[in-house]
Nucleic acid binder design. Structure first.
Lengths: 352, 352
DNA sequence: TGCGATTATCATAGCGCTACGATTTTCAGC
DNA sequence: GCTGAAAATCGTAGCGCTATGATAATCGCA
């Protein structure tokens, strides 16, 4: 009861809502040590005497203490969070990378903050802005193209940045990935080596998916250099799905009379092509050879099994994690070390 | 000047590393208002006079101020973070839910902290422990079964919890999903309605994937009730992949002589069955009817198109987001409102 | 036993922000 | 012009933890 009797106005100390029931202070009291020692024990157990350590461990267990990383992050001026921004987690490529990355980082006690840009630079900038608000230990972006605002924010922040899934330009800081035009070129050369001359590249959402567009242009260039008779790039405005593949095949058949080779920007599209060919009685690889990209789950098992290019999404995840960890604990990653090429692998199967 | 001449030892104020170049204080100074007003403006712009608001906005722009959510979270005793724990983001089901959830939450200024339990309760507990360290606004878990430690942690924390993708038990707090035994039963009844009597349920990783196991047992039960002649549940120890489907089909053919109906715990497995049947010249649905689960990307387009059960992963995401938002801003969600059934839909196509 | 060198522990000042309560300004209504 | 209520603004005490530098305890060796 705060009935201030009389004139003297005794100012009651301000009450603040407690967020944490058990604090480090409570642990320290129970373990009969100072809070500093508890903090030290939590961060470097070997720096605390075994006796004290045991006492602290016991106290933590007894109280059910859960450290408050928010407070820790504020005090230490850097949180144990890594922010990852991908175009879409629905895309199996990125799902694989994010999954691997998350596991690798979790093993080192780092959390993953996830965001989807939906292939939009403005969206990405907004996500980067919020991400920076968390003083993350590192930020992972997809691709090398970002809005000027994004670049400015990141440069000003001084946070380590890894750009993944694309190589070929100058990264903001570090980069892990591979060269997409080269992927397109590999696909074209493979088809040409099989004697195919009337080629098509079937892609989806290439107006937004910069990397798919790069694969297409690498394909076109290699077609020209390799003496293809026809080479069309056909784009589906919607997402890369099996259905998009069936639609794209039909457009390709219309546009290229003697179509005999198809490269797809995604194995899902290639699967759609396979199904549609089966429906129309087009022999694969007899009449048309098909090569995909992604080496997804079904690619080895479909009929015919799909020749494809594997981008190694999990390897990218591993390497990104490695760069992040070394740039957190160690010195800055410099020079050629900053850029890691995970390459691509062409896997030849029955469809070509 | 605080140069204490003579012996008096004036203690220099400790220097601390600055993490933030621009703070709210800097904005306040430039805008000629107090820090409180800036804070207020950032949280409720309408509570600040237009003049002051404009001045503050200008200052923020000029300085490139990025608020520090870590400090904010500490002061406000709750961070704008929602922690999501799924078994695996590689699984298309969860990828869809997480994607939708992330978008919905981002629109309200909430961040997503992601973790993978890999179907392990101990892993999940560790993730929950770290998640709680961030004083999240809410925690989203997959399924209803958790270790006692996880339950205790969550109950003690008082953080809103949503369990998703499973219904049928008592949730810790809130739940969004559907009943898996009913899914299995729907599949069985569908096959029985097509006159099939020698049935198999093909599942993967059911020793860990509790929900797939529930679908299997619902299937078995409905088989019994519906007068099936044979009904085998066959489990593949590895992940649910297309290849698992081919392996499982062969085991089913061995175990059930007159096999004429197959339900799969996942459309990827069903796709493998489709391919393997095609290889072996088994007519679908002529000889064997196949029903899947998931309604994945390819399910409508494959040959024959796949009858399947759609779990509505995006709807789950939307509903989870709704529950979280209302439990953050509003009162506690009570009673029947706490449990949302998103149901399942059987989509009949050519494979049955 | 004494003394410098380690090793273990401690006390305390913030990290940047928000909640709270207080204070100031504005503006009807008379 | 005065008054009271409403609106706008302000001052400041923490939130729980870590970094820092200082102090206390322990050890090796002459």
């Amino acid at each position: 009861m705060d009935t201030g009797s009389g004139t003297a106005q005794i100012r009651e100390p301000r009450r603040r809502r407690k967020m944490q029931r058990v604090t480090m202070m409570d642990v320290a009291k129970l373990a009969q040590v100072s809070p500093s020692t508890v903090s030290l024990y939590l961060r470097k157990p070997e720096a605390v005497s075994p006796a004290a350590g045991q006492e602290i461990a016991r106290a933590i267990g007894a109280l059910g203490y859960v450290p408050n990383l928010v407070a820790g992050g504020l005090a230490a001026a850097s949180s144990r969070v890594v922010s990852i921004i991908v175009p879409s987690i629905r895309n199996a490529f990125f799902a694989e990378t994010v999954s691997t990355l998350q596991s690798e980082l979790a093993a080192e006690g780092l959390q993953v903050l996830l965001g989807h840009s939906e292939y939009g630079e403005a969206q990405e900038e907004a996500l980067v802005r919020t991400a920076l608000s968390w003083a993350p230990a590192a930020i992972v972006l997809t691709g090398l193209s970002h809005s000027p605002g994004t670049r400015k924010l990141l440069e000003a922040s001084g946070v380590p940045v890894v750009e993944m899934w694309e190589l070929g330009g100058e990264p903001l800081d570090m980069a892990v990935g591979f060269n997409h035009p080269q992927v397109g070129a590999s696909a074209a050369r493979h088809l040409l080596s099989k004697g195919r001359r009337n080629l098509a590249f079937l892609g989806a959402r290439m107006q937004e998916d910069h990397r798919a567009a790069q694969r297409a242009s690498g394909f076109e260039e290699a077609c020209g250099a390799g003496g293809a008779t026809a080479c069309e790039v056909i784009n589906h405005l919607g997402a890369a799905t099996v259905e998009a593949g069936t639609l794209l095949l039909n457009r390709a058949l219309q546009q290229i009379p003697d179509l005999d080779g198809i490269a797809c920007s995604n194995d899902l599209i290639a699967l759609g092509v396979l199904f549609e060919c089966q429906r129309q009685g087009i022999a694969i690889p007899g009449q048309v050879a098909v090569i995909g990209f992604g080496d997804l789950d079904f690619s080895a098992s479909c009929i015919p099994s799909l020749t494809t290019i594997r981008p190694s999404g999990d390897l990218i995840g591993k390497e990104v994690a490695r760069l992040i960890l070394s740039s957190i604990q160690g010195a800055r990653v410099e020079g050629a070390q900053r850029i890691i090429d995970t390459h691509h692998v062409l896997i030849e199967r029955r469809s070509t």
